[in-house]
Amino acid sequence: MSTTAQHLQKHRQRIIETWMKNQLTDAALRDDLMSNDELRSQSDELLTALLRAFNSGNFDDVYSSDYDQVIEILNDISITRARQGFSPRETGQYVISLKKAVNEVLEEELKDDPGALYQETRKTDSVLDSLSMITFETFIKGREEVIFRQTDEINEISTPVIRVWDGILALPIIGTLDSARTQIVMENLLQEIVNTGSSIAILDISGVPAVDSLVAQHLIKTVSATRLMGAECIISGIRAEIAQTIVHLGIDLSNIKTKATLASALQLAFSMTNVEVRKINRNAGFKLMK
């Protein structure tokens, strides 16, 4: 058994108390997000695993199998905290306050032997520093996961397919089109074409901030896929500056039906499906009387 581990094992209870005290006195502690009991049992579990790892005498490589359990617990804690909405500071404090507690105990234990104290703290510090680094990394990863999930949700909800007329669908696209989003747009649109048996789809790009050659390529793909299904696609909402960039970039949209507004696209769709919409003059008779 390594001497460091012995020292710490002996004062396990004190470390836990000091650590808890450190955490609880931290002004930023969110007791609204986690109860003290929960925090204590979590901390206890981590300390047990850490002491076991120290016991192996390995203080150099936290990525070795000796620390597997510690890292697993830490990852779990930071991911949970990231999801619960803890700040990075709060999560980082968690390991740093443990380091303080460990140092205090070592200082107490080895106060007569500064040389040994230096050696011991150096070893534990390096491990705990690496661990806090890992905590940060995982925390950020946890946050990224939240972002990815939200991106998926935004993609999902931002592509509504609207049935504007019998056999005519409209799909307003808001925001920029990347390949992941194009796929979702295509899937939703094509599925809706099958479900409703629609023969015309209007893709309105008024809400697309800019059309570069990549976005244009995605649009062309969507149109081609719609045609393969046996439906026709009209692109509407082409603003002046979008028309300019399309021509300047040399993008060929000549095979695609384009209209400036959704209204004129709808009109085209009507004439393609042989539908006529007319204004009825209900006042005609009345005017004649006058």
């Binding site: 094509l190 793909k221 719609t226 393969l228 299904m229």
Partner: peptide, 16 residues
């Protein structure tokens, strides 16, 4: 009656 998934795949493959 082409299925949506087939249409998307064909377009990606470059076959229209």
């Amino acid at each position: 009656g082409m299925q949506p998934a087939v249409a998307i795949t064909l377009v990606e493959l470059g076959l229209t």
